[in-house]
Structure formats: C-alpha cells, structure tokens
C-alpha cells in the first residue's frame, strides 16, 4: 500500500494537500487543470520536494527521509531521460548500477531488457541516432532493469505523436502486467487515462483527491474537472 498521510507540499505561495491511499499494482492517472500541482505531487513522491507536513509510506515504511535514488521508485521525466554522451546500453545499465560496473549476468540483463522493448542489437548506439519513440523505449528498458515497485511517469511521452504515444502506453501496460509494479502517471489527456489507468487521482483546488474509478470519474466529472475537460 502507498499511503500519503496528511501530506502538505509547499512551494513558494503554492501549496498542495494529499491524504490518500493507493493499492499495490494499481494504475493511477493523475489528472487536473494545468498548474494544479500534478507534477508537484509526483516530485514529492519521488523525493525531489520535501513535505512540509505528513509522511509518505510504502508498505508501511516511511519514505520521507529517503534519498530519491534509494526509494523503491523509478521515474521518467518530461524530457532529458537519457544521457546523450552514454550509449544506449550504458543508459540502461545505469538502472542496475549507477557506477556502471556491471558483471556478465548484469550485461545480459541489459541486453534482454533492450530486446524486450524492441531494441535488440542497438546497445552500442548513442541516443541522438535514435528516433523519439526508440529513445522512449530505451528509458522504459531502464525502468525494466531497475525493477522498482513504483513507476512514476511525468508525461514522458508528451512530445510523441498520438499513435506513438498510444504505442508507448501499451508497452508500459505490458511491462507493468509482467512486473506487477504500481503506476502513477501525470496526464492532461483524459484518453491516456482511459487507455491505461484503472483509477484516477484528481488534483485540483490545492488538493489531491482520493482515487476513483477512471470511467466513473470521467463520465461524471466534478465541477473543477468539468471546467478543465470542457
């Protein structure tokens, strides 16, 4: 269980409250008007923002004081998910060991992950020689080898075209089905939520609301969401 207990996140004059629970294995879309604090919530979970009040628990363990890289979390950002000076295989290998000292078994694991996302034999290339979709696949291969319990996506596929974005979300869904990890995904597109998420957390009016069934919420949106959806 992921539990956000009486959390208060403050950033300048902006503040966001969250008091909610998320069951392991859920796929959550975090939606809401822009500027409502969707990314802020994800960043606080990942450890890039401190909590002014409250605590975050994963399986009963308090994560609030744990460094970002030590949390059971893999995260993909809006952009800059790959290091351009490292090869594809090195970028993936970072998910196993930040020092890139990999033994043969770990190298094989990197290779297998690349094959799983459809990039077999591309390990020696640099990110710049890949298409946008292929770069996203590299990042997902790294998520795969990280093997963390939670996956946070802060709109990493926003720059891709609609068809490619759908393809990536389907790949994410497959990988989650295999690993059983829990997904929290920021999105401003309700069709993304319908495509991959079984639950939705609405962030609006300085509050992250407890999750609801995707279809229920989107079919009968509350006023704040309705204004946003139009």
């Amino acid at each position: 269980m992921l539990r956000l207990e009486n959390c208060l996140i403050e950033n300048g004059g902006f503040s966001l409250r969250a008091d909610l629970e998320i069951a392991p294995g859920s796929r959550i879309a975090v939606i809401g008007p822009s500027g409502a604090g969707k990314s802020t919530l994800i960043e606080a979970l990942a450890g890039f923002r401190s909590l002014s009040k409250g605590a975050v628990y994963w399986k009963g363990k308090d994560l609030s004081k744990v460094a970002p890289g030590k949390r059971p979390i893999a995260m993909l950002f809006q952009d800059g998910n790959l290091f351009p000076h490292l090869t594809v295989a090195q970028n993936v290998g970072l998910g196993i060991h930040p020092n890139l000292r990999l033994d043969d078994a770990q190298q094989a694991k990197v290779k297998a992950a690349l094959a799983r996302v459809g990039l077999d034999g591309m390990g020696d290339r640099k990110p710049a020689s890949l298409s946008g979709g292929q770069q996203s696949r590299v990042a997902l291969a790294r998520v795969l080898v990280q093997g963390r319990d939670l996956l946070l996506l802060d709109e990493p596929f926003a720059a891709l075209g609609p068809a490619l974005k759908a393809e990536m979300l389907d790949l994410v869904a497959e990988l989650l089905a295999e690993s059983g990890a829990t997904l929290l995904m920021v999105s401003h597109d309700p069709s993304d939520a319908r495509r991959i998420a079984d639950q939705v957390v609405l962030v609006a009016d300085g509050q992250a609301h407890p999750s609801m069934e995707t279809a229920v919420l989107l079919d009968n949106p509350p006023p704040a969401l309705k204004a946003y959806l139009g």
Partner: peptide, 9 residues
C-alpha cells in the same frame, strides 16, 4: 534529478 533518481550521486 534524473541522476538522483538513478542513485548517481
């Protein structure tokens, strides 16, 4: 942030 999320410090 990417580095920190990969525990590269």
């Amino acid at each position: 942030r990417l580095s920190m999320s990969l525990d590269m410090r």
